[in-house]
Amino acid sequence: MRAGLALAGMMLIWACGGDAEADATRRSNPLPSPVPPGSDGPLNDAGTSPPPRPEPEPGEPPPYSPPSCPPTSAPPPSVECDPLAEDSGCPSGQSCFPFVDYPTSPCEVELYGARCGPSGFGVQGDSCADSLCAADHICVSTGRGTLCARLCGLSAGAPDVCDPGLLCLPIDIEGFGGCL
């Protein structure tokens, strides 16, 4: 079951321009280690009392040991401008958009960044299937088609720019979200 279909599926459709190849530099793929006991606050920590893993069932298929990618370091983002700043630093007629260049093989990583590019007129909720989004907006694939969404920051301390009722939901660009 999966109700929040739009949540995990917000994919950047167009992010202004470039199509640079992903850096093949590799990066680690760390997993969270159990959190030590004693954490408090309104949200309980799942790692405070980790139970033993269930024993295999008789007749259960044997687990498979998948090959894994060697540890890889994330390449530094390619930042030409600041998509969330009032003055993005882009030339007149252009706006700053975050972008992601996809890897070309399973062990490669994404290259994230921000660069200047032409902007359109699409604002919150407008279709961007055939047109560009305005500055401060980004074109994402949602459960209702490809739409412009107000760009928001997901890093700690980022201002809440989404209208009430909207959420700054993760998109597939490091550090950025869309108001959806």
């Binding site: 590799r26 793929n29 139970p51 893993r53 998948p66 090959p67 490669e108 990583v109």
Partner: peptide, 15 residues
């Protein structure tokens, strides 16, 4: 009562 360890479902470096 608790949760088991986090296990990667997809063991690749890409998203």
């Amino acid at each position: 009562a608790g949760a088991g360890p986090a296990v990667p479902v997809s063991e690749v470096n890409s998203d």
